[in-house]
Nucleic acid binder design. Structure first.
Length: 551
RNA sequence: GGACGCGUAGCUCAAUUGGCAGAGCAUUCGACUCUUAAUCGACAGGUUGAAGGUUCGAUUCCUUCCGCGUCCA
């Protein structure tokens, strides 16, 4: 457990301190403390009252918190308690508490939990403070806290020890001027919110989404996380095994096919918010387990979903931040790291083909025409044009035409989609579960929406023709045979479900982690996931083959 | 998977051209009855991520490995 002799020594000293606290008659790990309010409640209730008002009332309170700062000066002392991310100062005088309790105060360390009872007043400098009449020891911190002002700066430690990050992180600020002699450094605009605030907002995001759908007649459900066919998306799954049934299973990559089975079953409006698992790389936008919202609505198509999307994102932004303006550091591309302001209520819509034309790089020569995407030769020459302009573009002459078009889109357009943008009409070849456009058989009624330069959601009019669905799965099997490990597997039971009749339905998935990144100004998905996946840490001693002995 | 960067005391950070590893906070001891990044005095705290190499001498240069970050695939 100990990382150094220093830590071990300090731990031992604090165990000794615990004994002394016990000798003062304090239980060492009491199971409760009778608070009258939380620290945030106390600040809200008394924060506006003047010193005179407080002096007249001497409002009695009992609160509890963790000691984040402590200043002892002879026969008196101050300490700062923290609870629920807010702080309140306490004032302890030797002549206001019992002898044992002042002895206890002198034995307190940074990080300890205590409860105090007394009355609220303001100090000479005006700070809201509790004049302590009685204090109780609650729990000891046996290990040292991170730097009391800077907190944890090391990103890795913040992820690995999120418990420390949550109560010590104060966010990042723009550096304005160097610290003056003996003073605190000047702080500018906040660049990153405190960790705790990010996760409080994440909870608000979930609450707002549930409010939105619950008030519109949707039913929230939970469908299998362990599936014998990992369907509903193009991704590699994690594999597991059920011993009693001797059954290979996959962790789900999407809930999609189960949710549409529910629509077949007459659950016309349904949503699920839950984890998906994809056995892929890790980046600032990818964690192997991530949270996805999927919702389905019978008798709706992708045009209806576009409207719902714009409404939902606007609603959630207002609920969470009180504004639709999001300040967000771009996570990738040429402008990576740049802070941008995005209005989540202002949307534009472009078809995929329009987006390719709009963001066609000048260096690549003549822009494609709208009608040129139907020709394999034309699209192949687009690839050559882009490559000769120095753009790295994967291309396989044997891959379906639609896949090439989708790759071109992702390569040249995605990073430009910073303002909320709906990209609609996708190639059939990359959309095995979407309904074909009636007038264009190679294109489907599907859209993705992009904010901040990355994909946040994906939606389509659901393919509900079982014959067509079977053919699409068969096309996917050919892709699999061609070497595409992410191609969809055949799901006979899903085709059978469609054969009972799926009404016309629109469905959509939205990445909750990415949406939370936008609403909290977080540059990495790891900043919005409490315990992101990291490689397990090796201890130095474990790597050494031969133990070295001093003797 | 590739390129680049980072790893120094518990925490936050220094260390000039390759020349005695240092400061603040925290800890320990002492002083202090309105402090608030409290203040003042004293002590202690290091295998510079790991292993190897070059050198009279390596935190610094080189190689490999480990972990993390960023960009790209």
């Amino acid at each position: 457990m100990f990382e150094s002799e220093f830590e071990e020594k300090l731990y031992g000293e604090r165990i000794e301190t615990l004994k002394k606290i016990s000798e003062l008659g304090q239980p060492l790990y009491p199971n409760t403390y009778p608070v009258t309010m939380t620290i945030p409640e106390a600040r809200a209730k008394f924060g506006a009252l003047s010193a005179e008002d407080l002096e007249a009332q001497k409002p009695p309170v009992a609160i509890a918190g963790r000691i984040m700062a402590i200043r002892l000066q002879g026969k008196t002392g101050f300490a700062t308690l923290q609870q629920n991310g807010e702080r309140l100062q306490i004032y302890v005088r030797k002549d206001a508490v019992s002898e044992e309790q002042f002895a206890l105060y002198k034995l307190l360390d940074l990080g300890d939990h205590i409860g105090v009872q007394g009355y609220i007043f303001r100090t000479r400098t005006g700070e809201l403070t509790i004049h302590v009449e009685s204090l109780s020891f609650l729990t000891k911190a046996l290990l040292p806290l991170p730097d009391k002002f800077s907190g944890l700066a090391d990103i890795e430690t913040r992820y690995r020890r999120r418990y420390l990050d949550l109560f010590t992180d104060t966010g990042d600020f723009e550096e304005l001027a160097p610290a003056e002699e003996g003073g605190a450094p000047q702080q500018g605009q906040r660049l990153r919110a405190p960790s705790r605030e990010v996760f409080v907002k994440r909870a608000k995001v979930l609450r707002a989404i549930r409010n939105y759908f619950d008030s519109r007649g949707y039913i929230e459900v939970e469908t299998p996380m362990m599936q014998s066919i990992a369907g509903g998306a193009a991704a590699r799954p994690f594999q597991t095994h059920h011993n009693a049934l001797d059954l290979d299973l996959y962790l789900r990559i999407a809930p999609e096919l189960y949710l549409k089975r529910l629509v077949v079953g007459g659950v016309d409006r349904v949503y699920e918010i839950n984890r998906n698992f994809r056995n892929e790389g890790i980046s600032t936008q990818h964690n192997p387990e991530f949270t996805m919202l999927e919702f389905y609505q019978a008798y709706a198509n992708y045009w209806d979903l576009m409207q719902i999307t714009e409404e939902l994102i606007t609603y959630v932004a207002n609920e969470v931040n009180g504004t639709t303006i999001a300040r967000f550091p771009l996570p990738k591309g040429k402008r990576a790291g740049q802070m941008v302001e995005i209005d989540l209520a202002k949307w534009r819509r472009l078809s995929m083909r329009e987006a390719i034309i709009t963001f066609w790089p000048e260096a690549a020569g003549a822009k494609p025409g709208m009608d040129s995407f139907a020709s394999r030769d034309a699209v192949a020459s687009f690839v050559q044009q882009l490559r000769s302009a120095g753009i790295d573009l994967p291309y396989d002459a044997k891959e379906p035409l639609g896949r090439t078009i989708a790759t071109i889109f992702e390569t040249i357009a995605e990073e430009h989609l910073v303002e909320p943008t709906i990209i609609y009409d996708f190639p059939l070849a990359v959309s095995p579960l979407s309904k074909v456009k009636p007038d264009e058989p190679e294109w489907v009624e599907r859209f993705e929406f992009y904010i901040g330069g990355f994909e946040v959601g994906n939606a389509f009019s659901e393919l509900n023709d079982p014959e067509d669905q079977r053919r699409r799965f068969e096309m996917q099997l050919e892709e699999k045979a061609r070497g595409d490990e992410e191609a969809h597997a055949m799901d006979e039971d899903y085709v059978r479900a469609l054969a009972y009749g799926l009404p016309p339905t629109g469905g959509e998935g939205i990445g909750i982690d990415r949406l939370t990144m936008l609403l909290t100004g977080s540059r990495s998905i790891r900043d919005v996931i409490l315990f992101p996946l990291l490689r397990p840490q090796q201890k130095h001693g474990e790597k050494q083959e031969h133990g070295e002995s001093a003797e």
